[in-house]
């Protein structure tokens, strides 16, 4: 069977897995974005806090994803829980870092004027600072999503959802009929998915960034 025939044959299953893959990656990016932005907002005014938060988030990235997953299985069991935990942890660094950089890069004169004309702290943050930091934050989310596309495949090791299932099963059955096709189909699926989602990011960036600050 050629790769084409294999994909045609297993289309419905691959489609479901691709959907699950994208879904888990996007949901984890969103969770990480909420947490990451909150962390960024909490620390960006303090140089020490910013360093510590960035360092902690980077430390997570130095742990091999496979190892982290393996360590979490005894604690969280198999399936969705360890997958989501790992993905969210990995997604944090780019988002936290870009939130801090983005908020830190807001012109002090602009926030001074915002306060000076009578915006309260929350309004300054939500109506001015986060709006101006948004392109940077979104860029962080985009990097996170790209990274998670690959890492989510590894989550199949913990029986997580997604295209990783095909890759693992294909690799496990190396030599058997269609084993290579199966692993390839999973891998190419991840790549295609990553490209499509990246394109979506460009559209979202365009739609959500004010013309006044678009690059």
């Amino acid at each position: 069977m050629t790769l084409w025939e294999f994909v045609g044959d297993r289309w419905s299953r691959l489609a479901i897995e691709a959907y699950q893959h994208a879904s888990v990656v996007i949901q984890c990016t969103l969770i990480a974005a909420v947490i990451g932005i909150l962390i960024g907002v909490a620390v960006y005014r303090s140089p020490l806090g910013s360093i510590v938060a960035t360092a902690l988030a980077s430390t997570v990235l130095t742990i091999p994803s496979f190892a982290l997953l393996g360590l979490l299985i005894p604690v969280l069991g198999l399936g969705v829980a360890p997958t989501v935990t790992v993905l969210v942890l990995y997604a944090l660094l780019p988002i936290v870092r870009n939130t801090i950089v983005g908020l830190g890069g807001v012109d002090a004169a602009v926030t001074d004027a915002a306060r000076g004309i009578g915006m309260n702290r929350v309004a300054v943050l939500t109506r001015v600072e986060l709006r101006l930091a948004w392109p940077a934050i979104l860029a962080g989310m985009r990097v996170s999503t790209q990274m998670l596309m690959g890492i989510a495949a590894i989550a199949a090791y913990a029986k997580g959802p997604g295209l990783g299932t095909e890759i693992f099963s294909g690799l496990n059955r190396a030599g058997a009929a269609n084993a290579t096709n199966q692993a390839l189909a999973g891998t190419i699926g991840v790549i295609v998915l990553a490209l499509v989602v990246d394109g979506l990011y460009l559209i979202i960036a365009r739609l959500t960034t004010s013309r006044g600050i678009r690059g």
Binding site: D107, A109, V110, A113, R131, L132, S210, G212
Partner: peptide, 9 residues
């Protein structure tokens, strides 16, 4: 203020 501090967005 001096730099005007307009909201760029």
């Amino acid at each position: 203020i001096q730099q005007a501090g307009l909201f760029p967005h």
